[in-house]
Computed example of a mutant assay.
Amino acid sequence: MKRISLYTTMIGFAVLSSLSSCLKDESQPDFTKNQAVIELPIGSSAANGGGNSIAAAFTVDQTPSDYFVYVNYAAPEAAAQNVTVTLKVDTSAVTKFNTVNGTTYAQMPANGYTLAGNTVVIPTGQRLVKFPIKINTINLDPLKTYALPITISDGGGFTVSGNFGTLVSIITLKNKWDGVYTVTGTMLDTQNSALTGQYPRTLKLVTQGPNTVAIQDGDSFAHGILNAGAGSSYGSFSPVFTIDNTNSTITSAINYYGQPASNGRSARLDASGVNKFTMSADGKTPVSMKVKYILVQNGDRTFFDETWTYTGSR
């Protein structure tokens, strides 16, 4: 019995010793000893080595648009001193990103952005600050998708993150009439009475240039109609409207698929319509659009008379 008691006691000491060893953090990380890392934390990664990216869209305007990326002091405690971080536009990051992801984003030209400087200070007691950038949309092509790569070139004495040291901003442009609309109105096909209008309907106007937009239905450049009461659309037909920037008057309509398209369909503005956008008081956001246009195929075939009410951005 004494041997059993002694054996049991020895096992108990062993277990306690093992628990004590765990409590001394033999297997758990001690976060209090982590070294500070400087990073650009916002963005998503495809985990393929191409780098982190974030998407941003801007409306074309004479006035440059405000944009920023976050710079973070990653550590258990906030910065105990001012940390000056140096950043740069790193064109090599775009080449790498495109190569790895199979994309063809254009490097944003030098006149497409303005940096207030190349440094940002993380103040004592803080972690996260903004690095401000101006996007000069008027100098950019709305038909292109741009990449603006920002890289930390100096962490102010601290380690620069290997995974979050570069952020590629993928930038697209929209003109001020671009957006999602609820469309009501009438449609008359003079050649096929089975084809009728499908209203109300949610449609989009999608930027094609600084002052042009095309009708998009779902993910297709088209306009939903009814064929004997069933959902349909005219093949290879989507009006592209040109708008006067000074007063938001629609000056013309052509077919997105060609004028005419391969099936002989063209678009033409009906001069009897109001053909104009009503804009917000500051002139930057559409309220509604009234427009008449015609599908031309072997003459003036289909007449549209519509009101588009803006519901939000795409």
Rank of each mutant, 00 (worst) to 15 (best):
T182K: 08
G235N: 12
L195G: 00
G50H: 01
F277Y: 13
A214I: 03
I215M: 12
T207S: 10
V168W: 02
G218M: 11
T84S: 13
L188R: 14
S266D: 09
P64R: 07
K276L: 06
V120K: 03
T95E: 14
L140D: 10
L295N: 08
Q81K: 15
F221A: 02
R314H: 00
F58D: 11
L167A: 08
A57Q: 12
A110P: 10
G283Q: 07
G156P: 13
Y234L: 05
G51P: 07
A47Q: 14
S27W: 14
T202R: 07
S17V: 04
N34D: 15
A222Q: 10
A110L: 12
I122A: 00
N245H: 05
E39K: 11
F237I: 07
D141V: 10
T251V: 09
L128R: 10
A79I: 10
P239W: 01
I11W: 08
T119W: 00
V100R: 04
A78Q: 13
Y67L: 06
V94S: 06
N175R: 09
S161Q: 08
Y199V: 02
M1V: 11
F303C: 06
N263L: 12
A261D: 10
G264Y: 09
Y257P: 06
Q297D: 12
L87W: 04
P239G: 08
K88F: 00
P142K: 04
A116Y: 09
I133T: 05
R201N: 11
R3E: 14
T172S: 15
F13Q: 07
V206S: 07
Q208G: 03
V296S: 03
S232P: 05
T137N: 04
L269A: 08
M279I: 11
I133D: 02
K88A: 15
A267N: 11
